[in-house]
Design a protein around this nucleic acid. Structure first.
Lengths: 343, 343
DNA sequence: TTGTAAGCGTTATCAG
DNA sequence: CTGATAACGCTTACAA
């Protein structure tokens, strides 16, 4: 009694619970109960139904189930750029914990565009149980509106304090303050009195946070800070921007490790020796050890940890309303003392 | 007349097409037609319905729609390891083309495990229109079974020629032959007569392909080939394995660029100068230029191109039954002449 | 312990 | 052109 439906040269055989019930000689309801392990079904019939299901290679339709139960077993994940390892690692970590719970993951790449992000959100909202927005570029209002409809975990972004319903969503952030503060201390101790910051995306919350922390730390110690925008926070842009730096630059702090790597690459090309003639500090510690050469001094702000926290928030929205990943400075070989003439 | 459903402190407001219809004073059916742009509805009512939908912020449920139409608007994507840039880039490319068609993407990381892969497949099969299996570790039989149920695009893998229903699925592969052949020619011309290959995952089809191509090319020229297994095709494993190479090794060809980078890193640590004392060849060309130092001679086999082809196969399953991405050797600075004593 | 029937949100088939 | 009504596959009261 299988439904045969020829489409595109393919014979579509989908076993429904109806067929299982028929094969086992029970009603629809009993089949459903038996398969979902309800206690209100005697072992003998339960076996029989299971047998029929196995024989027919029955696979319950998530669609049908979702429609009636109101929960889909999927979560949605939206980030600004899947090519960026920061997000890939976040994703990898999140995946490994939610997949263990048999939860499906719908992903969307907003390409740094808030319109695209909103459109992805619309697409997902009817087929996921909750939504993880990573480094969202949408407005507070848009995010809040989404959070009214379904549980939202906001990662690497925090709503303005005045927001109306902060209780509705979880906010997981990286606390960049200690790391950036320590970085400036470190550079100051090495004798540096001025530094150049290669800034992140204009619309990014975390970019603003990093800039603010750095600005505070520099002000505190009287270090001269110049901020240079970078088109895209990736290796190539870092490489480009490094070519046009003020020739007197001796210290570069980068928005992330990718950009820092780009700077290292340009330095190598130009015979500028790191850390003798130039000190470089990255951020994220997203790179395997040994990839950067010389080894990169960086502000550890693991996106994996962020992913792990976000995963907890997804699984237990009631508890993990807020969380933050601490940062710390990891000193390696890309920072060195200021040359006497520069002090 | 909105359905209010308090759950977890959240007021769940979902507008259904029923409410839109009521608000516009038309029947369910008319509302559906109006919103889906059916010609069989007069402009005046059509406007009215649209207005009501906008007012109520109506967002059609993909679940309900899918159930009745039989198509979900989603595709599923399963690969062995999301941390691997090869797959990330594949994903990025695929995403950018299918997302433009407003198609959702469900991803699954099989963690190199065929059981996990099969389980992901079961989860997805009822909620996607077609499936992309990248570097699948499942058996031909399992893959074929899946292809009977729904359109499958097999990427970076090819079924054994004897397979019963090869017409049922699309197969997109990388043709490694020309690239590896050229690499051996190149090394031979530089005077090398022996080389070491750092092999990929045992269960991987593409790893077997690469090994076979290399073996053929070496046999053709009478080059001595020794094959060394690598635990995982990543930077760290490459770094490890390079530490335990035969000290006489002068040429290393790696399964992918990540492993090759690891080798470069170890060489740097040990003062082995590339390409003077050691020649290194990667595969994939997945790295931004400048990341590797010295610049890596590699076999270009772009995973982005693979993703683009897979995307076409997904969108047009009838036409793109098969496709292959050509490879070629890109000579940079990590390969050099054999030292006279070695010839 | 099992069966009947309602309904999740939508589209599609019929009549009108 | 529009409106009832029947699906789609499933779970879950409510009855038996």
């Amino acid at each position: 009694m299988s439904i045969l439906d020829v489409s595109g040269g393919r014979v579509k055989v989908t076993t429904t619970i109806r067929q299982v019930a028929a094969a086992a000689g029970v009603s629809l309801a009993t089949a459903s109960r038996a398969l979902s392990g309800s206690p209100a079904v005697v072992e003998s019939t339960r076996k029989r139904v299971q047998q029929a299901a196995d024989d027919l290679d029955y696979n319950p339709s998530r669609l049908g189930r979702s429609l009636v139960t109101g929960s889909t077993g999927n979560i949605g994940l939206i980030f600004p750029d899947i090519s960026n390892p920061f997000y890939t690692q976040f994703l990898a970590e999140l995946e490994s914990v939610v997949a263990a719970r048999d939860i499906g993951i719908l992903i969307g790449d907003a390409h740094e565009d808030s319109h695209r992000e909103a459109s992805l959100l619309r697409q997902m909202v009817t087929q996921v149980d909750s939504l993880v927005l990573v480094s969202s570029r949408m407005t507070d209002a848009q995010i809040t509106a989404a959070a009214v409809r379904l549980p939202v975990v906001l990662a690497n972004r925090r709503l303005a304090p005045g927001s109306i319903v902060p209780e509705l969503l979880s906010q997981i952030v990286i606390d960049v303050e200690p790391g950036f503060s320590a970085a400036v201390d470190h550079l100051y101790a090495l004798g540096h009195r001025r530094l150049t910051y290669l800034d992140g995306p204009a619309r990014s919350w975390s970019a603003r946070e990093k800039r603010a922390s750095l600005t505070r730390a520099c002000a505190r110690l009287g270090v001269d800070l110049s901020i240079v925008p970078v088109e895209k926070p990736d290796f190539e842009s870092g490489r480009q921007v490094a070519r046009h730096l003020d020739p007197n630059t001796t210290v570069v702090v980068a928005f992330n490790d990718q950009v820092a790597l780009g700077v290292l690459s340009t330095c190598r090309d130009r015979g500028i020796v790191v850390p003798v003639n130039m000190s470089v500090v990255g951020c994220d510690d997203s790179l395997p050890i040994g990839l950067a050469w010389p080894a990169l001094t960086t502000i550890d702000s693991s996106s994996r940890s962020l992913g792990a926290l976000a995963a907890q928030a997804v699984l237990n929205p009631a508890v993990h309303r807020t969380g933050s990943v601490p940062t710390r400075l990891v000193v390696r070989e890309s920072t060195g003392p200021a040359r006497p003439s520069m002090v």
